Amino acid sequence: MEEETGCNWAKSSEREQQYHDEEWCVPSYDDRYLFEMLNLEGAQAGLSWRTILNKREAYKRAFAHFDIEKCANLSEEELEELRHDEGIIRNRLKIQAVKTNAQAALKVQAEFGSLSSYIWHFTSHKRVIHQFESEADMPAQDELSERVSRDMKKRGFKFVGPVIIYSYLQAVGVLDDHVLSCPLHSLNQV
């Protein structure tokens, strides 16, 4: 029997495979992308990542391509209107969180110069490269995600529990959690 290679979670749909191959665990320093992924990870709470990926384009349309300034200035009427948008998760708290997170992100940008500087300062601007043999070895959260989560909550961010933040840190490439057999793992890149 041939041994499976790569990250199995991404093999269940073409969209997940593309996301895995092009974005997942790729270091990002772009504030707009970092903000987008923070909100998409928060929207995923209690749902599958496939569901969110399938709704991603609708999210971009609904939230001005995750322009932080525009999201911070959404009116209550606009937020209420989004509750009728079938393209996104219509949970009131998750929709409101985008505005709240944008306002918190603006404060972080003012303090740190960028959302990127803030996110990456937790690891001294270095990637954490794990060496997991299988996805079963991967934790749902760790000390880093707990620390980032605590700090983000203090700063007013919503839907930033340690499990969500662990996934977020993977999504934006702070963590390299490709399994060792995956050709995209950092150690396999030459």
Rank of each mutant, 00 (worst) to 15 (best):
M1L: 12
M1K: 10
E2G: 14
E2R: 12
E3A: 15
E3G: 09
E4Y: 12
C7W: 06
N8D: 05
K11R: 13
S12W: 03
S13N: 08
S13L: 06
R15M: 10
H20N: 07
E22Q: 14
P27T: 11
P27I: 12
S28K: 11
D30R: 06
D31Q: 06
D31P: 08
R32L: 07
Y33G: 00
L34E: 03
F35H: 01
F35K: 00
F35I: 01
E36A: 07
M37D: 00
L38S: 02
L38P: 01
L40K: 02
L40H: 03
A43F: 15
A43S: 15
Q44I: 11
A45T: 10
W49N: 04
R50G: 09
R50S: 14
T51K: 05
I52K: 04
L53C: 07
K55I: 05
K55P: 06
R56G: 12
E57G: 05
Y59Q: 07
Y59W: 05
A62C: 13
F63Y: 09
F63L: 04
A64W: 11
F66I: 01
F66D: 00
D67A: 07
I68E: 03
I68A: 08
A72F: 04
A72E: 03
A72I: 03
S75N: 07
E77V: 13
E77Y: 08
E80R: 15
L82V: 09
R83Q: 15
H84N: 14
N91I: 02
N91Q: 08
R92H: 10
K94Y: 00
I95Y: 05
Q96A: 15
A97M: 02
K99A: 09
T100Y: 05
N101T: 00
Q103L: 14
A104S: 15
L106M: 13
K107V: 04
Q109Y: 01
E111H: 10
E111W: 02
G113H: 06
S114W: 05
L115G: 01
L115V: 02
L115C: 02
S116I: 03
S117R: 14
I119A: 07
W120S: 06
H121T: 12
H125I: 01
H125M: 10
H125A: 14
K126D: 11
V128M: 13
H130E: 05
H130W: 09
Q131L: 13
F132H: 12
E133W: 03
E133K: 14
S134A: 13
S134L: 07
A136D: 09
A136V: 08
A136M: 10
M138Q: 12
M138L: 14
M138T: 14
P139D: 08
A140C: 10
Q141P: 04
D142S: 13
E143A: 15
E146F: 06
R147K: 15
R147Y: 10
S149F: 01
R150H: 13
R150A: 15
M152K: 01
K154Y: 06
K154M: 12
R155S: 01
F157E: 00
V160P: 00
V160M: 00
G161F: 00
I165L: 15
S167R: 10
V172P: 05
L175W: 09
D177Q: 08
L180G: 03
L180W: 02
P183K: 11
H185G: 07
S186L: 11
N188A: 09
Q189L: 12
V190R: 09
